[in-house]
C-alpha cells in the first residue's frame, strides 16, 4: 500500500456552521476531513450535508475516540461504528491517534499519552492490526502532542511510530503542530524530529494553532489548542517538511472558536503557496 490516498493539496476540517456556504460556493480545496464520532448519529442533517459534500470532495475520516494506545482491548462497539461509517462513506483516508482516551470510568475526550516501551509497542501494533482488519483497509496513525514524559519510556517517539508503520503496514499522519508542541515542551529540536521522521509512511499532514503557557519551572509550555491560525514557527517547520517530501495532503485543523470560512481559506492559501513551491518529487527518505 502506498500513501497518500488523498490529493496532495490543502484540506479543511468540515464544521456544521460552514455546510451551507461550502455547498453554495464549492471552494477550491483538495479534501474535507471530519471527526468520525460526529457522524455516528443514525441520520439527519449531518449525514445529508456530508453526503452532498462528498459528491464534490474526497473525504478524510479522522477518528478521535478509539483509544488505540489504551491498555485494555479496543471497544468493539466503537470499532463496529467506525466500520459502518467507513463502509458508508468509503473515505479516501482513515486516521486515528497514538493516544488513549477511555478507561473504566468512561470516555475522557482527551488524547492521553502512551509510554514508549517494547510492551506498549506490541500492544499498539496489535490494536492497529485489529483496526485495519476490521475496516478492511490501511489506516494512518497520528503522532501525539504531549505535556509530560514517561520515566519508563525506552524508545524514541519517531522510532516507535516507524516500528508501528513497518510492522502493521499502516501509514502515518504527521501533525507538524504536534511536533512543535512536543519538541518545545520536551526541549527537543523540532527540525531534527522532522529530519528523522520516516516520510515514506506519511499519508497526510496536519497543521493547527497552539496556545502557550508555562510549566512549574516557568519554562514555555505549548498546548495543542486548535483554536487559532497556524503559528509562524509551525509554518516554517511545515515548509521545511514539504521541501523534503514534496507535496502532501495538508489539513488545517481549527476545532475551537471556529472562525468564518474565509479565515480558513486564508490559511489554505498559505498552504497552497508552500505546496506550489515544493519539489515535484519526494526526496529519498
Amino acid at each position: 500500500m502506498s500513501f497518500p490516498a488523498l490529493p496532495a493539496r490543502p484540506g479543511l476540517g468540515l464544521k456544521p456552521q460552514h455546510y451551507a456556504q461550502i455547498i453554495a460556493d464549492q471552494p477550491d480545496l483538495g479534501f474535507f476531513e471530519v471527526h468520525a464520532e460526529n457522524y455516528m448519529g443514525e441520520g439527519g442533517p449531518p449525514h445529508r450535508y456530508l453526503e452532498a459534500i462528498c459528491e464534490n470532495y474526497p473525504l478524510s475520516l479522522h477518528g478521535v475516540g478509539l483509544s488505540i494506545g489504551g491498555q485494555g482491548p479496543l471497544d468493539r462497539d466503537h470499532l463496529e461504528r467506525l466500520r459502518a461509517l467507513n463502509d458508508r462513506y468509503q473515505p479516501a483516508s482513515f486516521s486515528e491517534h497514538l493516544a488513549w482516551s477511555s478507561h473504566d470510568e468512561g470516555y475522557l475526550n482527551d488524547l492521553l499519552p502512551v509510554p514508549y516501551t517494547p510492551q506498549t509497542l506490541d500492544r499498539v501494533v496489535a490494536h492497529v492490526d485489529q483496526v485495519q482488519q476490521a475496516l478492511g483497509r490501511p489506516m494512518l496513525l497520528e503522532n501525539p502532542s504531549t505535556y509530560v514524559l514517561f520515566a519508563q519510556s525506552t524508545i524514541d517517539e519517531v522510532d516507535f511510530l516507524d516500528a508501528i508503520a513497518t510492522r502493521t503496514g499502516c501509514g502515518l499522519l504527521l501533525d507538524v503542530n504536534n511536533v512543535m508542541v512536543s519538541a518545545v515542551n520536551h526541549r527537543l529540536d523540532p527540525v531534527a524530529y522532522i529530519d528523522r521522521f520516516p516520510m515514506h509512511h506519511v499519508g497526510e499532514i496536519h497543521l493547527a494553532g497552539y496556545d502557550e503557557t508555562t510549566d512549574d519551572a516557568g519554562d514555555r509550555l505549548l498546548i495543542d489548542a486548535h483554536g487559532s491560525r497556524v503559528r509562524p514557527d509551525v509554518f516554517a517547520l511545515y515548509r521545511h517538511t514539504i521541501a523534503r517530501t514534496g507535496p502532501l495532503p495538508t489539513l488545517i485543523e481549527w476545532d475551537n472558536d471556529v472562525p468564518a470560512f474565509d479565515v480558513l481559506m486564508d490559511e489554505v492559501r498559505l498552504v497552497d503557496a508552500v505546496l506550489d513551491a515544493a519539489p515535484a518529487q519526494r526526496l529519498a527518505s
Partner: peptide
C-alpha cells in the same frame, strides 16, 4: 513517573 524534561514531576504540565 510522569516527568518534565528535567526529570521532575510537574503539576502544571
Amino acid at each position: 513517573g510522569l516527568v518534565s524534561p528535567r526529570g521532575t514531576t510537574d503539576a502544571k504540565r
